[in-house]
Design a protein around this nucleic acid. Structure first.
Lengths: 108, 108
DNA sequence: TTCATTTATCGTAATATTGCAATATTAAAA
DNA sequence: TTTTAATATTGCAATATTACGATAAATGAA
């Protein structure tokens, strides 16, 4: 099928998995790492930095954006992309919660 | 194409995105949540709990396993699946690192 | 051995993702 | 207005993912 039965799962499960899915590609990790370390957050700089064609980068940026992980602000002719850390809070809570639960509830 | 050019990215970027990818499905999040909260970690109980067919669950378990997120131990006739929190440390570090970097380096 | 139970695998249909060339859009500069 | 530069969109080919029925494999029980 290739179609995810998201109606069968909770809002939280869908929300969380959607963010994880957006993070599930090396190019998108590379984009985020670039945004974190570089002084610039201009789209063109990302295109120059990554070893993929411009339309491909644009598509990856779109996916990160639609998952709420980054946001773009128009800056003259170019666009400045920045990380929306607030939206990643749900992920942080999940991962940190796992560490705790795992200790409390480990059978193997 | 549908094929990821992983050779163009770093080991770290590939490793990280692979784990995120495995977490990018609501059923797999549901499985992990079940393993964290339930006393049981028996495969059959997961199948009973989730609204998907047994072969589908088996496939999702396989993906979590091959990403190193869970591990299975034979327990008589059934199999006990458990979370391998150690393998998720890389994700924890990444997410926590983002919070810090973002504060230090925010332009928007 | 035969049967029942549990989990994995195979095969396949439907759909999604990845990547890019070509092209469109947008807005500043000349 | 025309040109230039920066991004986005379209269209498409190649491949991957999701889901499940049918079936296999493994193991304990009768």
């Amino acid at each position: 099928m290739g179609i995810t039965k998201s109606n069968l799962f909770s809002e939280h499960q869908n929300q969380l998995s959607q963010i994880f899915k957006a993070l599930g590609h090396p190019a998108r990790i590379a984009i985020l790492e670039y945004l974190l370390t570089a002084k610039s957050c201009i789209c063109g700089d990302i295109v120059d930095e990554l070893p993929l064609a411009q339309p491909t980068i644009s598509q990856h940026l779109k996916e990160l954006k639609s998952a709420g992980i980054i946001q773009g602000t128009i800056e003259g002719t170019s666009i400045c992309y920045c990380i929306n850390m607030q939206h990643l809070e749900i992920v942080k809570v999940f991962i940190e919660g796992m560490s705790v639960s795992k200790i409390e509830n480990s059978c193997c």
